[in-house]
Amino acid sequence: KYSDMIVAAIQAEKNRAGSSRQSIQKYIKSHYKVGENADSQIKLSIKRLVTTGVLKQTKGVGASGSFRLA
């Protein structure tokens, strides 16, 4: 599940300011076997996790910027 992968990526990075979408994508692609549409799936999952309150956006708008666990 992409949401689990995103949470794992943010936990692994341990950046106080949060993790960027690009760094999350890079982590997921190197640690998991994902399909061609992974980028758009990650983007959608990040937006969903922010609206449900699992992630907090520290910089930027939408799916860009930095995110950390709430």
Rank of each mutant, 00 (worst) to 15 (best):
Y2F: 09
Y2E: 01
S3H: 10
S3Y: 13
S3C: 15
D4A: 11
D4M: 11
D4W: 14
M5H: 01
M5Q: 02
I6F: 00
I6N: 01
I6C: 03
I6R: 00
V7I: 14
A8D: 05
A8C: 13
A8I: 06
A9C: 15
A9M: 03
A9V: 02
I10L: 08
I10Q: 01
Q11G: 06
Q11C: 15
Q11F: 08
Q11W: 08
A12N: 07
E13T: 09
E13P: 03
K14L: 06
K14P: 09
K14I: 04
N15Q: 06
N15L: 05
N15V: 05
R16G: 12
S19D: 01
S19L: 11
S20A: 04
S20M: 03
R21A: 14
R21C: 15
Q22K: 09
Q22D: 11
S23C: 09
S23R: 06
Q25M: 15
K26A: 12
Y27N: 00
Y27D: 01
I28V: 15
I28D: 00
K29I: 08
K29R: 08
S30Q: 11
H31W: 04
H31N: 08
Y32V: 00
K33T: 10
V34N: 03
E36A: 13
N37H: 08
N37T: 06
N37K: 08
A38K: 04
D39K: 07
S40R: 15
S40E: 14
S40H: 13
S40V: 13
S40A: 13
Q41I: 12
Q41K: 15
Q41V: 08
I42F: 04
I42S: 01
I42R: 01
K43L: 15
K43T: 14
L44D: 13
S45L: 09
S45T: 15
S45F: 10
S45I: 13
I46N: 00
I46D: 00
I46W: 03
I46Q: 00
I46R: 00
K47F: 10
K47V: 09
R48V: 10
R48C: 15
R48D: 07
L49W: 01
L49F: 02
V50L: 11
T51P: 00
T52Y: 08
T52E: 12
T52S: 12
T52C: 15
G53D: 01
G53F: 04
V54S: 02
K56D: 05
K56Y: 12
K56F: 11
Q57F: 15
T58A: 07
K59E: 07
K59W: 10
K59R: 10
G60N: 07
V61W: 11
V61F: 12
G62C: 08
G62W: 07
G62M: 05
G62T: 06
A63F: 10
G65H: 13
S66R: 15
S66E: 07
F67V: 05
R68A: 11
R68G: 05
L69R: 02
A70N: 08
A70I: 08
A70R: 06
